[in-house]
């Protein structure tokens, strides 16, 4: 499902973001990515979600070699991945419905199909009553649930979440985490970056540790 083989990422200023990274994640797995700030978690996620290319080595996601993606193929690759960020990345001037519907709109789905699927996924994350609210009118936890709904709406094979609970209090974090576990139970591979050691200890999932760009699975 996700495999890194001797992957390196060297930035133009010479800084090595990732060094000889090799690991694999199987279909349907729930895996934590753990490491201190600046260890390379975000760089690794960028490679998985097609927002960057490795300098050398191989990164394979859903059977696609990310380093060989052409510019025109990248959007279609991204449509198969769900990405959640710590800062939610919602558009403030669009309603919850419009934010969640976006992946289907860019795909050119019919309006009726979009409406049905948005209602379904918002029901799943417990926000069906927030359809016409704007992001600024709902809480942080609800905003993150909207971001999760947007990441799930197109049935991605892989869901990557970069510190999804970083901006939330403990109760909200637990709620979001339960949601991610539910998504995983439905068969989606989930890869979550976190530096919450407590959370990692409490859960029975595999942990990929990263430190100064090097991975120890």
């Amino acid at each position: 499902m996700i495999s890194f083989s001797h992957a390196y990422k060297v930035f133009p200023n010479g800084y090595q973001g990732l060094r000889n990274v090799s690991f694999e994640i199987e279909k349907g797995e729930f895996v934590f990515l753990s490491g201190p700030s600046g260890a390379g978690k975000t760089t690794l996620f960028r490679l998985i979600s097609g927002f960057d290319r490795p300098s050398s080595g191989e990164v394979n996601v859903l059977g696609t070699d990310v380093s060989s993606l052409t510019s025109s193929a990248i959007p279609y690759f991204r449509r198969r991945i769900g990405v959640i960020y710590q800062d939610f990345r919602l558009l403030r001037d669009r309603t919850v419905f419009e934010n969640v519907a976006m992946p289907l709109m860019v795909r050119g789905d019919r309006h009726l199909a979009i409406e049905r699927r948005v209602r379904e996924v918002l029901e799943q994350v417990g926000l069906s009553f927030r359809l016409s609210n704007f992001p600024d009118e709902i809480s942080g936890g609800e905003q993150q649930r909207v971001a999760i709904a947007r990441a799930l709406i197109h049935h991605p094979g892989v869901l990557v979440a970069d510190e999804p609970t970083g901006n939330l209090d403990q109760d909200m974090s637990n709620e979001i985490f339960k949601l991610l576990e539910m998504v995983n139970a439905q068969g989606t591979t989930v890869f979550v970056a976190t530096h919450d050691a407590d959370l990692i200890r409490r859960k029975p999932y595999r942990v990929v540790r990263i430190h100064e760009g090097e991975v120890s699975a």
Binding site: S72, P75, Y76, F77, R78, R79, V83, R89, L90, L91, M102, P103, V106, R107, R150
Partner: peptide, 16 residues
């Protein structure tokens, strides 16, 4: 800019 970033994030093509 944020609008363009989010559109890229969800897989919008350049034309879109």
């Amino acid at each position: 800019r944020d609008e363009i970033e989010v559109l890229e994030l969800v897989g919008a093509t350049s034309r879109f």
